[in-house]
Amino acid sequence: MEASMDVKGLSATYFEPLIQAYKAQVVHQTPEEYQAFYSQLTEAQKSLFMFHVYYNHASKSMPDFFWWTGYFLTRPKIWNGIKKGLMFFEEYTLERLLDRLEELYKRHHWTGKLPGKTDSLDPKISTIIQPYFLKYGCISNKSLETIGEYILGHPEEFVNPFVEKKTL
């Protein structure tokens, strides 16, 4: 179990220099800054970055899960990047869950009228979204392990002159 915990933590360890570089380079949040940053990453780094863009926001609570899913759905380039990253790591189960969430949001017209971010959900929405959130918690936990194992097997894909080298 201890080794599993270390493997799960690898994605966060390798994500940290990416997010620090992002914060340093994407100062004004312009599409040009974002593209310049993103174009410097390897495919593995892009996939890790996009996974954590979603995971770090959506995993905090059910209201965060609901709101951030809707937010990213209104930004197709980001949403598709998240799903592409999952496919890179062969995380098809989580990618399919995101597809089902996309269908759910369209069916309920939630993306067009996303409320302001709050710490609670309307009880009706909560009832609908809870099973997805619970499933997401289980699947994303396994994803952390899968990504960590990928990093162990391919550390060179996560290191380039742009990001400082992390040692295992």
Score class of each variant (00 low, 15 high):
residue 1 M to Y: 12
residue 3 A to T: 13
residue 11 S to P: 03
residue 12 A to S: 10
residue 13 T to P: 00
residue 18 L to H: 01
residue 18 L to W: 09
residue 20 Q to P: 02
residue 20 Q to L: 08
residue 34 Y to T: 07
residue 34 Y to M: 05
residue 36 A to K: 08
residue 37 F to K: 05
residue 39 S to A: 08
residue 39 S to V: 04
residue 42 T to L: 15
residue 44 A to H: 06
residue 45 Q to A: 13
residue 47 S to R: 03
residue 48 L to Q: 02
residue 54 Y to S: 00
residue 57 H to I: 14
residue 60 K to Y: 03
residue 60 K to S: 11
residue 62 M to E: 05
residue 62 M to P: 00
residue 63 P to M: 12
residue 63 P to T: 12
residue 66 F to M: 14
residue 69 T to V: 10
residue 71 Y to E: 10
residue 75 R to V: 12
residue 75 R to H: 03
residue 76 P to F: 10
residue 77 K to D: 03
residue 78 I to M: 15
residue 81 G to V: 11
residue 82 I to H: 00
residue 83 K to W: 05
residue 83 K to P: 04
residue 86 L to K: 00
residue 87 M to R: 08
residue 88 F to I: 09
residue 89 F to W: 09
residue 90 E to P: 00
residue 93 T to Q: 04
residue 97 L to P: 00
residue 101 L to N: 00
residue 101 L to T: 00
residue 102 E to D: 06
residue 107 R to L: 07
residue 107 R to K: 05
residue 108 H to E: 04
residue 110 W to G: 01
residue 110 W to E: 13
residue 114 L to H: 03
residue 114 L to W: 07
residue 114 L to M: 04
residue 115 P to S: 02
residue 120 S to Q: 13
residue 123 P to K: 15
residue 126 S to T: 03
residue 126 S to N: 13
residue 127 T to K: 14
residue 131 P to V: 02
residue 138 C to Q: 10
residue 140 S to V: 06
residue 142 K to E: 11
residue 142 K to C: 14
residue 145 E to H: 07
residue 146 T to W: 15
residue 148 G to D: 09
residue 149 E to W: 05
residue 150 Y to V: 10
residue 153 G to K: 08
residue 163 V to M: 14
residue 167 T to E: 15
